[in-house]
Design a binder for these strands. Structure first.
Lengths: 350, 350
DNA sequence: GAGACCTTTCGAAATGTTTCGGTAATCCAA
DNA sequence: TTGGATTACCGAAACATTTCGAAAGGTCTC
């Protein structure tokens, strides 16, 4: 080979050590983040390391292949108690298995001994060579997510509470269109007194669904009656129960209810049963999420389906792309919702 | 210290290598599961390794401090689609958060690209310093579990398919007693024609429940009618649907059904609804598992509650104990079940 | 059957990591 | 002030792992 490259000798621990005026073990400690090195020494070694472009064997190995075996992605969820969470997680796990990626799942809900600070967590992720993180919880604020971004750790948020900012990559669904579709479905059936029972009030997705609901009403010339909008709940069964009790106090009862999530709808369903109110004969009910649990209830629940598993897959895919250093087309992925009319909606009683 | 221990020199790679008649690098490769070692050489080295009781630094590290930060436990589940699985997993995740342990969850169900051989998987666990594994799936046979045992990787199986063997640590519930309690509950209400719809036929837990059912019947002098025992299903909703259709063909219809799991019971419930058969007026129904989903159905489901979350916790606790090298009191933990009578059971129609 | 080429297996040497003990700085009680 | 105790920091030596090429044996081609 005549065209031999000038061949700058590949930096080794020893060469770096000599240049920095310390021993090889000391450099090893700095590279591996051990504690017993003084700040000054560490800084000096780091400088030489940087200048020489040294890569530890670990770094060399992981640099090549993000997305293959050995890649670990962290998944942070609130609690595993809603059908929504379960299906999203399922999507992530399925895709992870197919992509040969490992997933480290942790809950932030109750009992977590010492929710570590984002800084700490980010540091540990770097140490352990984690490829990135998927967040399905409200545990991290916008500012905290920045901590990860600063360290170049790929993060994707599913259904963020806050409106999507340019700095955070997020995955969601077309909530506004979905809320509109659900309401139109009820309008088409002939309903005019339609109530909305919402989830977490400030949540972006809840807002979007509510505004889709209002848009549909107004487009048909139906006045939006604030009495029929129950808010202040959460995306949980109990909120459905409480919300329905709230609605029962009104005089012209609504003939249909649009629930902000399937779990809420199921709460409504069971509470209606307790009061001897039949669904859909006496009142129509439509949920949001399109969970299996809704499909399996009696009567089966009409709903606006979000592709929950697909959302999980999309989130993981996006994390892996970022980890590989690819440029993302968009910082916000919105997947389409579609209406599923099942047995819990019908024309209003004459 | 006068009582100094004779101090057999700690085995090192070199000493093992010499004894096995190979070089140190070769021993290293065997220990770390590299490919380029002939089977004969590997076997020879493994023998010496075993005899000398050599421990790789990785093993030494994980042996010392299991249970604190940085500990990673793998959790292998089938698919995240049953209430049972979800609650067990939730228990594991909650306890993991409290114990500051990380959990790596993987599914073996569909789509898993290349279910790695247990050998491979065990090797990777050692490489990555994983503390142990919890198995909630039928993906591993008894023999395959041995592969982990041989490498001293702590493994705990939750509700194993096979009868608990002395070699595998397992966590379960008092299935026999639970099956008996469920059946006695129905007998106490006055039922005599009681059907059983089972899950996976060979599964240990299913067998135990079935035999508890039969024991209760016999103890009261009620003949066990094989027609009323539907088997060949799985612990899934569809099996409840199919099983109920099966029972509908019989002439003296059963007045009560004991389902092998809540998911099965929910299938029965929805199918009964489709046929206009009311629960519990026309037929009583009791499940097994005591899942939240059962509690939330309409009518709410009577069930034999297993402490599912507690089982998850117990499994994780046991893995951590093993990882710390503690001696286990028992290789089989059985947690108590208890009957929850709700709205789906009532005296038979006169 | 000779040669080119590949594959498997292994170890020497190069490289990286850990253990452990020494040194010096600091702290503390007398 | 002094002497012991404690701690932080560092490197020599011991240990482990990886790289890379050599040797042995196969397979294919001509």
């Amino acid at each position: 080979m005549a065209t031999k490259i000038p061949e700058r000798p590949k930096p080794t621990l020893a060469s770096v050590a000599q240049q920095a005026g310390v021993s090889a073990p000391t450099v090893s400690k700095v590279v591996n983040g051990r504690e017993d090195v003084s700040p000054q020494t560490r800084a000096r070694v780091l400088a030489v390391l940087e200048q020489a472009g040294y890569q530890s064997p670990l770094q060399r190995r992981s640099a090549g292949s993000a997305g293959g075996a050995g890649t670990v992605v962290e998944v942070v969820i609130d609690v595993l108690d809603s059908a929504y969470m379960i299906e999203v997680l399922n999507g992530i796990l399925q895709f992870a298995a197919a992509a040969d990626v490992e997933t480290l799942v942790s809950v932030t809900g109750r009992g977590a001994s010492d929710v570590p600070s984002p800084e700490r967590r980010a540091q540990r992720m770097l140490d352990e060579g984690r490829a990135g993180m998927i967040v399905v919880t409200s545990a991290f604020s916008e500012a905290q997510l920045q901590a990860f971004r600063r360290r170049k750790i790929p993060v994707v948020v599913i259904d963020p509470l806050n409106p999507p900012s340019a700095d955070v990559v997020s995955v969601g669904a077309t909530n506004w269109a979905g809320g509109k579709a659900a309401t139109e479905h009820l309008l088409d059936l002939g309903h005019r007194r339609i109530a909305y029972i919402g989830g977490i009030e400030k949540a972006e997705c809840n807002q979007a669904r509510l505004h889709g609901y209002m848009a549909a009403l107004m487009a048909r010339g139906v006045t939006v009656d604030p009495q029929y909008i129950v808010s202040g709940g959460r995306f949980r069964r109990e909120s459905g129960v409480a919300g329905f009790q709230e609605l029962l106090k009104l005089d012209p009862l609504p003939t249909a209810i649009f629930a902000g999530s399937d779990t809420i709808a199921l709460g409504v369903l069971s509470e209606a049963g307790r009061h001897g109110i039949r669904v859909p004969e006496d009142i129509s009910l439509i949920g949001f999420d399109g969970t299996k649990q809704g499909a399996e209830s009696v009567p089966s629940l009409s709903s606006v389906a979000q592709p929950l598993e697909e959302m999980g897959r999309a989130a993981l895919r996006s994390v892996l792309r970022q980890a590989r250093g690819e440029v993302l087309d968009s910082h916000r992925v919105e997947l389409a919702t579609h209406l599923i009319a099942r047995d819990s909606t019908a024309p209003p009683a004459a």
